[in-house]
């Protein structure tokens, strides 16, 4: 008889595997993205089971809340031509399948061997009142301050690169300046031209 935790683990894992499979098999890209969100969500559940509540929160907030929603927008806005994407699928299938199967067999031989078994390990028992988030924060500000700062620089690089690649100089749009319009005088708009009268014959 399985205990509650194991049951939850298998329940979440089953959903995760199903969702991950649907991501690559769904014909509609929006469905694929939605299934990806589902798989992230169940992965967050697995983190909670391991008592890593901060990681679970970050996964939900950053990946689902920010990244995937953005992704969903992009997929919805891009008018993907699915038939074009599938072109040549059957031509590439034999070669791809052979290589894929070979790699699966090789990795299976390594991973399935006697030495690559996952050991039964217990979740470390943490005394009540210890906050995972606080510990991580303290580590980031002390031992891991150097990689933390480096990650900040990587983000700076991303900003500079994004601006350099997309900014094409100030936009020269046509607009009217209200102050100029108020100050306008009649002589600015109408020019009276004196012309000699011509005789009609």
């Amino acid at each position: 008889m399985m205990d509650f935790k194991t049951t939850v683990f298998f329940f979440l894992s089953a959903i995760l595997i199903f969702a991950a499979l649907r991501v690559i098999t769904a014909r509609n890209p929006v469905h694929a993205v939605l299934h990806l969100i589902l798989s992230f969500f169940t992965a967050a559940g697995l983190w909670v089971l391991l008592q890593a509540e901060f990681l679970a929160m970050v996964l939900v907030m950053v990946y689902i809340g920010a990244v995937m929603v953005l992704f969903l927008f992009v997929v919805m806005m891009l008018d993907l031509n699915l038939d074009q994407l599938r072109q040549g699928f059957w031509n590439y299938l034999p070669l791809g399948a052979v290589i894929g199967i070979l790699m699966v067999i090789e990795m299976g031989m390594v991973l399935g061997s006697r030495y690559f078994q996952v050991l039964d390990s217990e979740v470390p028992s943490v005394p009540a009142g210890v906050s995972n988030t606080k510990e991580l924060g303290a580590l980031l500000a002390t031992d891991y301050v150097y990689p933390f700062e480096l990650a900040a620089v990587v983000l700076l690089v991303a900003i500079v690169a994004a601006v350099a690649l997309t900014f094409r100089g100030p936009k020269k749009t046509r607009y009217t300046d209200p102050a100029k319009q108020i100050r306008v005088k009649a002589e600015d708009r109408v020019r009276i031209v004196k012309m000699p009268v011509e005789k009609q014959d």
Partner: peptide, 17 residues
């Protein structure tokens, strides 16, 4: 490994751009 990876990404991102 962490700093090595971050350095590599920092350089590569600049080069892609």
């Amino acid at each position: 490994f962490l700093t090595l990876y971050l350095g590599l990404e920092m350089m590569s991102l600049c080069l892609y751009a």
